[in-house]
């Protein structure tokens, strides 16, 4: 009961601007990461599904490496490992590191989502497209992509939500997104329950809103015959 009594609502109220600043950074990085992973997913997913030589194998290795290593290590590798390559250091801006790392992660998962989606498009549909005189690329754009992307939608939505949640790990390199802002705030105010309950509530609000929104889109985009 003392928990409730000693809970400092005023403190949260006073620091709403801080949370808002952090949230904006989170949403910005997540938006770029989600957009990028959508593009990667379509291109590499198509390469995998259509067995395009070389690109198919490169994509396969990329997917396995990213999905079988922790994203936190990937972030440190990009932020701290690449700068120490003997001879050819690669130095990136913190913001670049931020969106790049979540995009690379999301792209790998999305490649799998879209590969499965494209492969689930019945062969006869593509045959019909080719028979109508469409080129292979036009067939992909007009037949495989619209149907396959819809099949891939539920699993790719999970990936987008994960991309958003993964931005919290950028705290580890001091990128000032939502979790980092809260962590810094707590380290100077010593109010862990206020700070972290507010942080958790903010994430749930964003994640649940995002899920509800995409579910709405999903329902509108769902393939008619699957209804």
């Amino acid at each position: 009961m003392t928990l409730v009594a000693s809970f400092d609502w005023n403190f949260i109220w006073e620091h709403i601007p801080d949370f808002w600043t952090g949230l904006k950074a989170t949403l910005k990085v997540a938006a770029i990461g989600i957009g990028g992973s959508l593009a990667i997913g379509i291109v590499l997913g198509a390469a995998r599904a259509h067995r395009i030589p070389v690109l198919n194998w490169v994509a396969a290795v990329y997917v396995e490496v990213i999905r079988n290593t922790p994203i936190l290590v990937q972030i440190f590798f990009i932020a701290g490992g690449l700068t120490q390559i003997p001879g050819h250091p690669i130095r990136l801006e913190p913001f670049t590191i931020a969106w790049l790392s979540v995009m690379i992660w999301g792209g790998a998962y999305n490649t799998e989502n879209f590969r499965a989606g494209f492969e689930a498009v019945p062969w006869r549909y593509r045959e019909a497209g080719l028979a109508l005189g469409f080129s292979r690329i036009a067939t992909f754009a007009n037949v495989t992509l619209p149907i396959g992307a819809r099949i891939a939608l539920p699993s790719s939505i999970n990936t987008y939500v994960s991309v958003l949640k993964n931005t919290s790990l950028l705290t580890a390199i001091g990128f000032a997104e939502l979790t980092d802002t809260a962590y810094s705030l707590e380290s100077q105010s010593f109010k862990p329950s206020e700070v972290y309950l507010a942080l958790g509530a903010t994430y749930l609000l964003v994640v649940w809103t995002l899920s509800a929104l995409v579910r709405l889109v999903e329902r509108r985009l769902a393939i008619p015959e699957a209804r």
Binding site: L169, P192, Y196
Partner: peptide, 21 residues
């Protein structure tokens, strides 16, 4: 499922012990 795991761990490790129970 909705919370980032890092936030859950912060809640458990930093906030939970301040609860008097």
């Amino acid at each position: 499922r909705g919370l980032p795991i890092l936030v859950t761990i912060f809640l458990v490790y930093f906030a939970l012990p301040t609860a008097p129970v």
